[in-house]
Design a protein around this nucleic acid. Structure first.
Lengths: 144, 144
DNA sequence: TTAATAGAAGACAAACCCATCCTTTATTAT
DNA sequence: ATAATAAAGGATGGGTTTGTCTTCTATTAA
């Protein structure tokens, strides 16, 4: 469904959103540890998310990643779009470039329905909405 | 959503199902041409589908690919499972190995809903059901 | 039986994704 | 000011996916 990069990105952003609520910045090592992801790799991913304006960062001691916008402003769909592009939300299920209403592939209509549901689900999921559950340990970001 | 390999596989199977209705076998070149896919590549893919028992073939003159089972027996879900595996139908949206009801990721429940809808959509789509529309030119398998 | 045909199988190449390392730059605490 | 800290940026390697080519094997038509 999502690329590995994108999965890490979503997990990292949810974690940063939680920590950012207290005004605290989080370093790459802490993030990598918390979401059980390769350190150097999420460093790269967060660089990219930073360039896209989805996350902010500060260098030096006490530096790290944080969110300047309300975490409620950023949806999982925003992250997916930034990393994997919007092919998942707009593309043809069978990979046909010119698939459209007037030139549909065999599963065009059925696929569009589920595609839109995925899109809505991700648009409605805001990175800030999981903080309490994370603290409760009722949801998790690690592999194991 | 699906791998390129899987997209080609679905398109090829739908095409073979259509041609197979007349009892005719179709060659790789004809398939590659009809679904606008790289010839050598779908050859490989069809080999794999053959090993999995989803398609039959015969070598030599008048040989080619065909379906011995009713095309209505084979669903798109069968093809996806054969090529991409069933991670799409069972896996965690955020790539967590141990994500489950009792240890859910943040989007576990919402994701499961759309995942199941995709699965049902693909289970209900049989490769044989598109033949008439293909002949009508009301649906298409080529990129352009 | 022979020649032509067409898929099977194996090897190989290019592109992309995933992951790691190293140097540079910015910031802070002292 | 200086040293320590932490992210940014560039380079690089491994693995998988995608795509191609060549040889082998099975089948058919003549």
């Amino acid at each position: 469904m999502f690329s590995k990069t994108c999965e890490y990105a979503i997990r990292a952003m949810i974690f940063i959103a939680q920590k950012s609520k207290t005004g605290r910045k989080v370093g790459i090592k802490e993030i990598a540890n918390a979401i059980d992801a390769p350190e150097y790799f999420i460093a790269k991913i967060l660089q990219e998310l930073g360039r896209k304006g989805l996350v902010q960062s500060l260098k030096g001691p006490t530096g790290g990643f944080y969110l300047e916008k309300e975490p409620s402003k950023c949806s999982l769909a925003d992250i997916v779009k930034a990393i994997d592009g919007d092919n998942l939300f707009n593309g043809c299920g069978l990979g046909l470039k010119n698939c459209s209403e007037i030139r549909p592939c065999p599963i065009h209509n059925e696929f569009k329905i589920v595609r839109d549901e995925i899109h809505n689900m991700l648009k409605n999921a805001r990175i800030g909405e999981f903080s309490k559950q994370l603290e409760n340990n009722s949801i998790f970001l690690t592999r194991k």
